[in-house]
Structure formats: structure tokens, C-alpha cells
Write a protein that binds this DNA or RNA. Structure first.
Lengths: 258, 258
DNA sequence: AAGTGGTCTAGACCACTAG
DNA sequence: TAGTGGTCTAGACCACTTT
């Protein structure tokens, strides 16, 4: 295949490929439609499969494609807007959002989380905290997996007897949390890759790109809980406001006019 | 090639490698230190260079490493918290944030942006809008590149004569914007890959992962401007609150205790 | 069993940076 | 010019899903 390299084209092949595929996706394919398999596509464009895959990876990262082993590559629907606005000042689980408590254990949090909580974070014998695991569902599919860390001191009235672990215990911890007066919360978003455990719940492979939303819950003048939620980066658009279901750019082209 | 597959090891090599490297990074390396080159590392671990690179890519995605062509791979500093809180209700450029106006042209916005603005978005002859280009600096290095789309109708008093384009024109548009009463804004965050143009300003390669922050500015009951800002995903952590410089997890391990 | 995407290899050359 | 990361190739085998 001639590389069309007439001049001034030090552009990587996979980058050019990505553009071509992106345009084809816009014009010739419908959402949900399956593409030809990678070997055929590579042959068609006259490149090695690895190069073709590099282009597909980018498109998947941008939420344009969805690839499933054993099945094929399909055109992804537009990203779904997921509200993570902080203004509500409610405890997790309070509203009728789509969070489902899954489990609750006593665990030693990662050092970074321990540092945010007020618990002593001695590397040797860190204090264990209640660790609630939740899944967030939207439109019937999982979009986020969360670990909510709650020091025992934040929920003093929790009875340890009637449900030592499991989903019921998780609900109990959330119930106790909601009895506290929430003074505020602050939140951050960063890119990460899914741990094996989260990946399974999100129906993705380990290492899949995720948006990590870290929330610090503040009450009684201190940090009483920390939540680390990982959202599927391929399918989610996090919204902070009332623009829930607007359609937003996926890296659209821009034509200069002046 | 012996795959060391003694038992129960359906774990990809690159994934295991990533873990090993990550631990080594924590214990044996200081921020800024340069790692051995890829060929040496691959040989040392007995894998192909491509496999080694797959692990390095993941670590770079998580903000642990920084790779520069012609130079080498270095240990990245912790991500810098960048405030993007929406509560201030100020126009862009109002406070003394680190945004630098770079340029301003008349351009046809991407269809997704045109749809958010109230301008008609006929595919054939879309209305051109003022397109302000800005760079956000933090600690002396660029962290974000923005395109701010302002329909001509939003800044009626702008005189087109005294600065038809360039940084001065950009400042004029911003000044006119600030005369409007801002009623609100909503914002969304999603994963994207840097366009060639943005990548250059961010000192990254095209396709580098970025966090795309789309903001809709609302005044006089309508959308009067739209901003699409791309933040370097490798070095930035977006914060929504007053937790500006806390240290947050980068995918830390978690030890179960119960 | 057949077909898909995911992993891995052992090379090669290119683009960039620094001495 | 030497050394680095970035791109690319042509294979091979594996894990998974569907038929």
C-alpha cells in the first residue's frame, strides 16, 4: 500500500489509520455494528496487525470502539453522562442513586488513603477500617466500582455482632454514616488503570483505563470517610452540574476559517 | 521459551512486570532518577522489548513514569493537583489563575460544540465563532490547552478593528465576556487523546492521554460560551474543592485483613 | 471446531536529544 | 555521533466466545 507520503508526512502510520477509521466510523457504521476482524482490517490497510491494533486502541480509549475477546470489535455508543456533582452534600447511599452495596470487610487501607483519614498510618501496623465495596449501575450495566473507607471511630454505634460482613454489614455502615452531619466534601479526578478486582466488576480487562474519583467526606471538623471510585473511562463522561445528557465532543475535528 | 508457568499463572507477563517495576520504583528509586534503557531492562527481565514497553506504558498512564524520546525514562513526581472547581462562578481569565491567552481566530467549531452553543449547526455552512486559545501553566510547565468558543452574538461590543487576531484579540474577547453576568456553568470530564495541536503545546506526543474538561458558560438564559480544555492526564489530578495539594493514591495496594 | 481479540517474540528502522 | 524512546513488521501461540 502506497503510504500516500507525497510530502511533509512524518506522521505515524497508526495515527493516520486512526483518522481514516474514525471518519469511516462516522460515515459508514452504525452504533453496535461489528467491524471486520483485526487480521482482515490489517490486510485491507496494508499494515501489520500490531499497527492496526495501535489505532484501534486509541479509538477504544476515546470511547469510539468496544472490543471483546472472542466476540469482535463493535462501534460504541456515545459515552453516558454520569453525575458526580459534589454540591448535594449528601452521604453516599442517601439518595436513590444507582449504587449497590456489595460487601464490607475490615481492611488496612492503602497508605495514601490512610494519610487522608486521620488514623495513624504506621506502615507496620496500620489501623484497619471498615471497607465498603459498592457498584454503581447505569442503564443496567456497571459503570463504577468503589471502595469506601470508614474508620471505626466514625461509626461508634455500629454493632459488630448482627452482621460481621457482607452486603448487610455494608448497608449498616452506610446507615450509621448518614447519621453524621456532613459538613462538606472535596473530590478529585485522575486517570488510572483498573486493578484486577475492579476490572472484574466493571466487565473489563485488568489495566483498562479508568477515571479515579477520590472523595473526602468531612464532618465534625475532620475527615470521617474516604471513597475511591473507579469509573470506566471508555464508557463514562463525568458530569458536574445539570448537563447530564448532553452530547459532548469526542475529539471532533475543527476547521479553521480565518 | 520457558514461560515460567509453574502453576496458576494465567497472568500476563507485562502485568506481572508492571507490579515488579512498581514496587522497585517505590523502594529503589527517587523522583527524577533515570531508569536503565528499555533494551537493558527487557534483557534483565528476560522479555521482549515490546512486552517491557507494555508495562512501562501502563506505569506512565498511572503517572509513575515519564518517558522522553532521545533522553530516557525517569521517575515521575506525584501528580499535581489542579483546581477546576466550578463553584467560583467567575469568567475564565477573571481571577489571577495561570491561564495565558495565546491566540484568537474565527473558526467553525466542532459539531459537538456547535450543538451546545445556540448557534445553528448546519453541517454545510456552520457559523464561525471567536475561538480563543489559552494555555494553563502550573509550576512553570504547561498542564492544559484550551479552546474557548464564543459566538459573536455573545460579545456584541467587541470591536473587530483594533486587533483582528492574536493574543491581544484573545484578551479583548475575554474582557468582553467578563462584562456579562454569569448565571452558571456546568462541566464534564472525560478521557481523550491529545490532538496534534494540543500535544505540541503540552510538550507531549500526539495521542497522549488527556482529561478533557468541557465547560458550558450560561448567561442570560442561554449558553454563551463553551470551553474545551485538555489536561495532561499523566501529570494532573483535577480537584473540585479545597483539597488542592493533598497526596492521593496512585493505585496503591490494599491488604485485606479480615 | 472455528473465529475472535490478547499476548509475546526478535528483529528492524526512524526521530529525537545530547555530548 | 551515540544513545534513547517511538514505530513497524511477520510471524506465533493463548484465552475466550460462539456455533
Amino acid at each position: 500500500m502506497g503510504t500516500t507520503q507525497l510530502e511533509t508526512a512524518p506522521e505515524p502510520k497508526y495515527w493516520h489509520l486512526k483518522t481514516v477509521l474514525s471518519d469511516a466510523l462516522d460515515s459508514d457504521f452504525a452504533v453496535g455494528e461489528i467491524l471486520p476482524n483485526e487480521r482482515d482490517l490489517a490486510a485491507r490497510f496494508g499494515v501489520a496487525r500490531a499497527t492496526l491494533r495501535q489505532a484501534l486502541e486509541q479509538l477504544e480509549l476515546e470511547g469510539r470502539l468496544q472490543r471483546r475477546r472472542g466476540v469482535g470489535t463493535t462501534v460504541a455508543p456515545p459515552r453516558v453522562g454520569v453525575d458526580v456533582s459534589t454540591s448535594q452534600h449528601v452521604w453516599p447511599g442517601a439518595g436513590d442513586d444507582a449504587w449497590k452495596p456489595v460487601d464490607c470487610t475490615l481492611a488496612v487501607p492503602p497508605v495514601a488513603v490512610a494519610r487522608m483519614l486521620d488514623v495513624a498510618a504506621d506502615a507496620g501496623s496500620g489501623d484497619a477500617v471498615h471497607t465498603v465495596r459498592r457498584i454503581r449501575m447505569t442503564h443496567g450495566s456497571p459503570v463504577a466500582a468503589e471502595l469506601l473507607y470508614v474508620p471505626a471511630g466514625s461509626v461508634p454505634e455500629l454493632s459488630a455482632i448482627d452482621a460481621p460482613s457482607g452486603a448487610i454489614r455494608a448497608r449498616n455502615v452506610l446507615r450509621e454514616l448518614q447519621r453524621l452531619g456532613l459538613e462538606g466534601q472535596d473530590r478529585s479526578v485522575e486517570l488510572g488503570s483498573a486493578r484486577a478486582e475492579d476490572a472484574k466488576e466493571l466487565d473489563r480487562l485488568p489495566g483498562a483505563p479508568v477515571l479515579v474519583v477520590t472523595t473526602r467526606y468531612i464532618a465534625a471538623g475532620g475527615t470521617v470517610a474516604v471513597s475511591v471510585a473507579t469509573y470506566r473511562a471508555d464508557t463514562c463522561r463525568l458530569t458536574f452540574g445539570d448537563s447530564g445528557d448532553l452530547e459532548i465532543s469526542h475529539d471532533g475535528e475543527q476547521r479553521q476559517a480565518s
